[in-house]
Design a protein around this nucleic acid. Sequence first.
DNA 1: TTATTTTAGTAAAACGTTTAACCTGGGGCC
DNA 2: GGCCCCAGGTTAAACGTTTTACTAAAATAA
Lengths: 338, 338
Amino acid sequence: MKSTIKDVAQEAGVSVATVSLVVHDNDRISSDTKKKVHRAIKLLNYHPSRSARGLVSKKTGNIGFILTDDHFLRTEPFYTRIFLGTEFQARTNEYYILLTTIASDYKKEDPLPRFILEQNVDGIIIAGKVPCDLVENLKEYNLPLVFVDFLPFKGQYPTIQIDNLKGGYIATEHLINYGHRNIGFIAGDIKHPSIYERFQGYKNALEEIGIRTNDKFYVIDEDYPARANGYEAASKLYKRNRNITAIFAANDALAIGAMQFYKDNDIKIPDDISIIGFDDVEVDLLIDPSLSTIHVPKIELGAEAMQLMLNILKNNSTTAKKILVPVELIVRKSTKKI
Amino acid sequence: MKSTIKDVAQEAGVSVATVSLVVHDNDRISSDTKKKVHRAIKLLNYHPSRSARGLVSKKTGNIGFILTDDHFLRTEPFYTRIFLGTEFQARTNEYYILLTTIASDYKKEDPLPRFILEQNVDGIIIAGKVPCDLVENLKEYNLPLVFVDFLPFKGQYPTIQIDNLKGGYIATEHLINYGHRNIGFIAGDIKHPSIYERFQGYKNALEEIGIRTNDKFYVIDEDYPARANGYEAASKLYKRNRNITAIFAANDALAIGAMQFYKDNDIKIPDDISIIGFDDVEVDLLIDPSLSTIHVPKIELGAEAMQLMLNILKNNSTTAKKILVPVELIVRKSTKKI
DNA sequence: TTATTTTAGTAAAACGTTTAACCTGGGGCC
DNA sequence: GGCCCCAGGTTAAACGTTTTACTAAAATAA
């Protein structure tokens, strides 16, 4: 059944060392011998044992994937799709992904994920915002780290990020092009770097045409970027400012919540108010009217992260590369010219 | 940094064998010695190496999770949620999940997932319908298998399943209770066992009140359970039969597609036609009107599967247990009394 | 007291690889 | 012919555990 390197060696009439060298395509072995060995490998359906390999080479062939539990449980498949991309890219490169979550209030004294303690990963991909303490604790294991959709404030790390600034800009620009001038902005945690960048993009676009905004135009103190908060934010904004004709929501969930508020208050979308989101999660097409948004290529984001990890692993380089993946304006039915 | 069993042995002044026995809480070791060793373990932050362990014990601490690639890429987070449940349950029991997909047209001669060939898993959880050939090929590795939301036609296997029959029944019953008598049914692949059971539940409920259905009442030859097919199915059904006042769709995606068809043809939901889905995927609340459906506890489904796997692994039992998880009627706005 | 059993622990082999160091038998060069 | 080199391997140690068989000391029985 399960054949070992010894069986192969015997079958091919060579030493186990030779088999190992053949498996790693070492050029010290003649092509004749290689052929012989390969035949034996095929015949016996030999596959090297991960454990044995890992034990001696210190390489596990696993990559850890960490995100906080609230990101993990989010109903919109955002980080899940990133994970999918990572997993796919890993698989085609003969790696496995070990996924785990950590508490979103992870503290210095909390234990690290088990796969780190057990030396069971060759590198770690971190998706979304995670507590600094985690990154701190990770340091002493000096495993290669790659961040996706987040970059810790201190320290230099390779990262794959959404072009949030551009996204915020083109979302706002789209509204401007549609004739809107009183454009509101709603967000959850503005301290989240990605969200802050989207906000900057929004401000940049407006300033470019000479509009200065103030807090009558935005609600950025919602504590969570979910639908209920979008509803609440829209409500607050409505009380503060009745002149707004368009809303840029920092993500789709907020946008959808806001839409619900307008529906409940008989404000027509997009006739009375235009609304644009950010992320392009799977559901945007389903809601009525369908939501204009900024498309984020989530699977690619994950795949890129894994690719970056592979490069680091291969070259042993630790360049703190920052890769920005482009976003795209998707115009649907929730925005309208005035 | 990374301390080994030797370091611990030295620190505690015992042999490595003793440390190993302490780690496994063997009662041949006195509690005094255990204390000493535990102190050393804490002090050195010792965690046994997975690889070394796996090499000798033949246990990897990994569980494989297999699904077909089209299930994996489905936009509704159905199997993803099942995976989440599995992963969570695995983690709290010190296991890792290795996820992989296979082609939905997997053939006998195709290679098995790498983690099987490399002996890198202790058991396998299979989610959703997979080709028989895969199951056949898996046999010779005789790893424990657990199926979720599917059971191969031949062979006896432990499985966690949705109570589809009951679900189909209560969905239909709900429509009957609302006064409907001409109730349609639409489905994708009726050969999928789960779908077939839902269909049976539908028929049972109707027969119980003396209604015999015929193919003027259902479209069950759509090849895929996606929204576009729901649209198409509703269209076909509309052409065949104008008396229908309610539809039971075999899953939510089909239901949503059907709703789109009715909207496009100015048929009001739920005034002109009631519609109920199955699965309760995350988006059901967002669509307008919100979709009545049968709730399937997806995370629990995955967690149960892992739990079953853990029991099998612990007891070395291979009882082909079948666990049915209950479903629940969720009444929202898409169904109405007539 | 001596023989036997029990307790508490240890020594060492084994698991399946990788890899550094070591061989060996020609061929080329002077 | 003697020497060195090189191509093409092989030997054996090492990786960090688990586990079987063994042992020394203590407890018990005769």
